[in-house]
């Protein structure tokens, strides 16, 4: 199943009446099937909110989001969960502290009435680079990198074609980040996954993504190819500032 994403005039407000705050005034962009697309911008610019709207974790938005040509609102929930999954920033917060990996991974299998739980769990654990004995561990028995691998395994166990990655490595050390990024690159090659990845690190965008959108106060200022980072080929002033700051910070100038 193809999983290109089309977002048209996506807007959302939090709160009601005169106190309502419009967080996304009208977002437009599209992600091709099999692409790795980055969303960058400062904190509060609405990057994560876009992911939450696509995944319907937040569902009171206006506008149009379609995945593989189908309106996301028309896709039944069970089917949606097999089409897209999300990986969150903090592996300490996103895994239930009192549930073993087995519980975490087998729950979606039960809900979706899938067979061969043990086999599926073993395969997905191996796919994320861990050994089968991790199935009976609890989050506190694992390092941050191992937890993030489990979070990715949880996202993959229903075999989705679109992964929404919300800062998947920013809570991790650079050495562990390298492991997780390598894993994400390999999984995309093997499975032809589509990634929509929120990050604040342009070096990660440069390493992972084909194109990226720069967001500012809820708006996409510019969609740029990866090649625009080096040499700063952005035209929007904020995008230029962001890329310039990242280059300077890296000492790449």
């Amino acid at each position: 199943m193809t999983s290109n994403v089309e977002i048209r005039n996506l807007s959302i407000s939090f709160g009601e009446g005169p106190a309502a705050v419009k967080v996304l005034p009208g977002v437009n962009f599209s992600v091709e099937a099999g692409e790795c697309f980055g969303l960058v911008g400062e904190s509060g610019s609405g990057k994560s909110t876009v992911l939450r709207c696509i995944s319907m974790l937040t569902d009171f938005w206006q506008g149009q989001i379609s995945i593989g040509g189908r309106n996301v609102r028309d896709i039944p929930r069970l089917e949606r969960c097999r089409l897209l999954q999300m990986v969150f920033q903090d592996p300490y917060g996103s895994l239930h502290p009192r549930q073993s990996v087995r519980t975490t991974l087998s729950e979606p299998l039960k809900i979706h009435g899938l067979d061969d739980h043990e086999g599926r769990m073993r395969r997905v654990i191996r796919d994320v680079g861990l050994t089968a004995d991790f199935i009976d561990r609890f989050p506190h028995q694992m390092s941050g990198g191992q937890r993030q691998r489990i979070a990715i395994a949880r996202a993959l166990i229903l075999e989705p074609s679109l992964l929404l990655l919300d800062e998947p490595t920013s809570a991790l050390d650079v050495s562990v980040q390298a492991e997780i990024l390598n894993l994400l690159v390999r999984l995309r090659e093997e499975r032809g996954l589509t990634y929509l990845m929120v990050t604040h690190d342009l070096a990660v965008v440069d390493h992972m993504c084909d194109r990226f959108a720069v967001m500012l106060r809820g708006e996409v200022t510019e969609v740029l190819p990866r090649a625009a980072i080096q040499g700063n080929h952005a035209t929007h002033p904020y995008a230029r500032e962001l890329i310039g700051a990242s280059l300077e910070y890296e000492g790449a100038l």
């Binding site: 650079v174 050495s175 342009l202 070096a203 080096q230």
Partner: peptide
């Protein structure tokens, strides 16, 4: 050296990041 090599850098040729 391992920490330095694990870091993605803007403009690098894309390859597997080296793991510590």
């Amino acid at each position: 050296r391992g920490l330095l090599a694990a870091q993605p850098r803007i403009g690098d040729r894309r390859k597997m990041l080296s793991v510590l």
